[in-house]
């Protein structure tokens, strides 16, 4: 029997073209045995949320270096609520000042990984957060 796999959307919202981080994370998650749906650049929040729904993703990871994180996190989380898909976890990274992290978490972001975070930290967080999510589903 094939076991359930962690499925993660890795997306670059907006116009920011710096995708080194997103791609490195995508590879690291794959190497950790996850299925990564990579959407590429210039995604609107609507596209990201619909993708997560169609792919039955467990989590959405977004990478933003342009300073537009408040807008994108806010909008994506709001859309997930509208579509009754708030169980999908949202996390992210990029150039995000630490001061802004509490605000993003209050919006509903599960974790924010700043520059220099080892990918293993992100993998560990995902593995445990997604397994908690699965436990909630069967409960």
């Amino acid at each position: 029997m094939s076991e359930r796999k962690v499925r993660v959307i890795v997306a670059k919202p907006g116009l920011d073209g710096h995708d080194r981080g997103a791609k490195v994370v995508a590879r690291a998650l794959r190497d950790a045995g996850m299925e990564v749906i990579y959407t590429g650049l210039r995604q609107t929040p609507e596209q990201i949320v619909q993708t997560a729904i169609q792919e039955d993703a467990d989590a959405i990871g977004i990478s933003i270096l342009s300073g537009a994180h408040e807008y994108y996190f806010g909008r994506i989380i709001e859309l997930l609520k509208e579509r009754k898909a708030s169980d999908i976890l949202v996390f992210g990274g990029g150039v995000i000042p630490e001061d802004d992290v509490p605000k993003l978490k209050a919006m509903g972001a599960g974790a924010i990984f700043g520059p220099g975070t080892p990918t293993s930290v992100c993998i560990d967080w995902l593995n445990s957060a997604v397994r908690e999510k699965w436990a909630r589903e069967t409960a």
């Binding site: 794959r30 996850m34 990579y38 596209q47 993708t51 169609q54």
Partner: peptide
């Protein structure tokens, strides 16, 4: 590792928000 990077839908993302199209 059993993991995968699934990148094909990248080229179809213009249809992502279309209610009549479902991409998996």
């Amino acid at each position: 590792t059993g993991g995968a990077i699934l990148g094909d839908r990248l080229r179809m993302q213009q249809h992502a928000v279309d209610p009549d199209v479902f991409i998996r």
